[in-house]
Design a protein around this nucleic acid. Structure first.
Ligand code: FES
Ligand code: FES
Lengths: 144, 144
DNA sequence: ATTAATTAGGACAAATTAGTCCTATTTGTT
DNA sequence: AACAAATAGGACTAATTTGTCCTAATTAAT
């Protein structure tokens, strides 16, 4: 469904959101440990998210990653997925036709469109705050 | 969503179903041309589907691929996807946790589960005959 | 029997994705 | 100023997926 990079990006973002919610900036090392991801690879992905202005980074000693408190509830999963995997998941054809076109549909177009739209809706209606709070309250988990 | 191999496998199966519906066995060359896929790669995928007894192959001159008429309506997309991509799409975690477990859910588990189930239902309730007939009637297309 | 058409299958090559390593840069602390 | 802790980024390697090529085996037609 999502690339590994995207999975790590989502988990990292949720973890950063959770920490930022409590006012704690977190380091790459801590993030990688808490989401159980390869550190150097995670670094690349976080760089990407920083470039896309989804998260913020602070260099140097006591630096790390954070999300402004006010932004936590406004960042939707769709932004993260789009930044990392692009948006082919939104408009790509399920059978890999060059374009998904209502007027020239592939055999599974009608069935697939519904799923794609549900996924899109899910990603656009879920924000980091909701997920971060679930982690904090022990309802959901980022590893194991 | 699906691997390229799976996309080709689905399209090839639909094309074979359509031909077999009319009693025509088809060659690899014809299939690859009609679904716009790399021939040698498509051959591997068809071998796989033959091994999984989803389609039948006949060697030698005038050989090719076919599906028994009576089977066309019984073959579900889920069988093809399972044969090629495995069934991780059915029970895998959206964020890549080792297992998707109700008792130890990832942050997007609840939202993701719904989409996964809808996809599963779609693949299990769609058979080759339906799709082949749409192609035959010009409602849907396998390439371009 | 020979030939031509065809699938089967192994070995390989190319492209993409995943992941590592090293160095540069930034910045707070001493 | 020196140091230590951190992100940024380039170059590289590894693994996986995608795709090619060649040869063997099979089979119908001649
Ligand atoms: S054309 Fe294939 S999903 Fe729309
Ligand atoms: S645990 Fe992630 S989808 Fe179920």
């Amino acid at each position: 469904m999502f690339s590994k990079a995207c999975e790590y990006g989502l988990k990292a973002s949720i973890y950063i959101a959770m920490s930022s919610y409590d006012g704690n900036r977190v380091s790459l090392k801590e993030i990688a440990k808490e989401i159980d991801s390869p550190e150097a690879f995670t670094a690349k992905i976080l760089q990407d998210l920083v470039r896309n202005k989804i998260i913020k980074s602070v260099k140097g000693a006591y630096g790390g990653f954070e999300i402004e408190k006010g932004d936590i509830a406004t960042i939707k999963l769709s932004q993260i997925v789009k930044a990392i995997d692009g948006d082919s998941i939104y408009h790509g054809c399920g059978l890999g036709l060059h374009v998904c076109d209502e007027n020239h549909p592939c055999p599974v177009h009608d069935q697939f469109k519904g799923i794609r739209n549900q996924l899109k809706h899910m990603l656009e209606s879920t924000n980091l705050e909701q997920l971060a709070l679930d982690i904090k309250s022990g309802v959901s988990f980022l590893k194991l």
